[in-house]
Design a protein around this nucleic acid. Sequence first.
DNA 1: ATGAAAGCGCTAACAT
DNA 2: ATGTTAGCGCTTTCAT
Lengths: 362, 362
Amino acid sequence: MEAVPRGGAEVTTIARVAQEAGVGVGTVSRVINGSSAVSEATRRRVLEVIAELGYEPNATARALSTGQTNAVGVIAPFFTEPSVTERLRGVSPRLAGAGYQLILFDLERPEQRDQAFRSPIGRVDGLLSISLSPTPDELERLAAAAVPLVLVDQSHDRLPTVTIDDVEGGRLATEHLLELGHERIGFAGDQEDGAYGFTSSSRRRTGYEQALAAAGHRPEPELERLGGHGRAAGAETARRLLDRPEPPTAIFATSDLTALGVLEAAEELGVRVPEDLSVVGFDDIEVARYAGLTTIAQPLRESGAAGVELLLEALAGGPAPSRRLPLELVVRGTTAHARTGRSFAVSKASARIAAAHTSRVT
Amino acid sequence: MEAVPRGGAEVTTIARVAQEAGVGVGTVSRVINGSSAVSEATRRRVLEVIAELGYEPNATARALSTGQTNAVGVIAPFFTEPSVTERLRGVSPRLAGAGYQLILFDLERPEQRDQAFRSPIGRVDGLLSISLSPTPDELERLAAAAVPLVLVDQSHDRLPTVTIDDVEGGRLATEHLLELGHERIGFAGDQEDGAYGFTSSSRRRTGYEQALAAAGHRPEPELERLGGHGRAAGAETARRLLDRPEPPTAIFATSDLTALGVLEAAEELGVRVPEDLSVVGFDDIEVARYAGLTTIAQPLRESGAAGVELLLEALAGGPAPSRRLPLELVVRGTTAHARTGRSFAVSKASARIAAAHTSRVT
DNA sequence: ATGAAAGCGCTAACAT
DNA sequence: ATGTTAGCGCTTTCAT
């Protein structure tokens, strides 16, 4: 394995091209940018030299000069999470289609939060933030730098946003369980995360409580548990719920990952799903379908695409009206009638084929 | 919803800070970069002004000046595919941990191929390419620009790479099927993709053919089908295989996505899996577990992490020895003995819980 | 139509 | 220890 020689940065510059073509750098710049008037003869010659030398304009220098980077930053706390990746799947192609580079600002640790909205300045033309909201101070700085910002999965009164109605989502999930005759419905949510300020879980909880109240149930604090995010945490939360003298017959988890953890815990404790326990998740990430999980589906990929759309509009100087995306209850195999344990889904097929037997209820 | 004022780029520059602090720009630069000798008094004063003005150094300007961007480019054809996303999950945190920005070069259309290795020059300090190999010419340019490049999922004789043994993978899959007593084993692969030059599928096919030959089977071209990549394409390929007078009793698909398509087609045609048809995939993407798919697992996330590791070493000027990652047969519910149709897996549980009943065979 | 030169914000070499 | 200045590679006036 012969190593590739690492020559010093002997990249062709615009000056080199100009010299070789016997013209000024200004002229070269003009042909590159398809600018106004350059005689057909010189244009051709310059183009020739460019091809010959394999010249590629230095994006950094151009950015410094024009003040435009042609890059968009995407702030993504926990890029490793399926729901975030799924949103990004909507972001990336659209951005590329619009000729923008995508710079990912992945935050996996709380310390990184502080830099989130600061470090991108000067590096990007616009910002898309997933689930994270800027402080007033950060917002002001962004405005001063004329960097438009769009929020996905977070509402804001001064920024274009792409959101869903979390409260309604919580209500939908709970009503589904209520309709199935469940009386003791547990709640497995995320605890308020100070560093990031994610709030969707608590709004979903509000919906859950509203639905319960509307059905005449009084609040039972011992049925509401908050834990960390993710699968393992969900399992832990579920254990605390299931390990009670009078365990719930159904659990609403505020994310699919958490719900998957609940299923894991149930399996572990010998609690049958959906016979003994019904489970509803939230998000409808890809695996939910294969896990046969009943869930509140939100258009993840579309949210990313819509965010880009808004950002592009803002970048073009136009208005960027916030958008609210629809929610949908997707019934699969993890929910059933309280007494009978008979699955609500059309057919109680194995989870692998359950995907084909999904009833969607809006 | 009050719009945020978009002021003209009134960002604080280093000059402004210098002026405000009554020092030269050089001094400010020194304190920013923690450079050598600056009197404690001035350092403090400068720091104060910086905080007060909320000054943030312009990364672009710095990059132009130093020739370092502190960014790494990741070339990812089909970022939207699960396997690619999974690799990226290994990349992102490590890169962030090392203080590098991640710039994603997503290629979804063939035309973008040409720019892949060119446009990043000058924008990044190093490059990580997933499944895509540079042409000799591109490689030369990269070398001239002193931009190190690491390949993931693609071998190369002059570049550091992170690979798996695709041939062995194909062999492993086929041997598993052979051991289960299958005689008519179909192959569902990707057709050579001219634009991208992905070659793993055909290497896996080589392994498949080797295993067959070693078992004394003679090649049956009509059992080998090439189709597009992805789920729908996999279903189509499977239909062509299953729609024959003497259909195979097992199919090796060169990717999990393809395998999922095969399952879909089987379901559609009323072919029971694994009773009538055994299916083996490749990759072990997240959903494979939930779909209960038997597959050849490759360490996707680790491959991304290893790639970053190598790139970091190259960036530090050190040697970056290529790495080969291990493969593993993961038996789940889609493979069974040829005659009996009895599942090979420990327990033939529903796919949802199949995850817990997985036998790993190396 | 095109060359020359200023300037984008920063770093680093050079003075002092 | 710290101010001054010359680039980094490009775009964009301003001349001509």
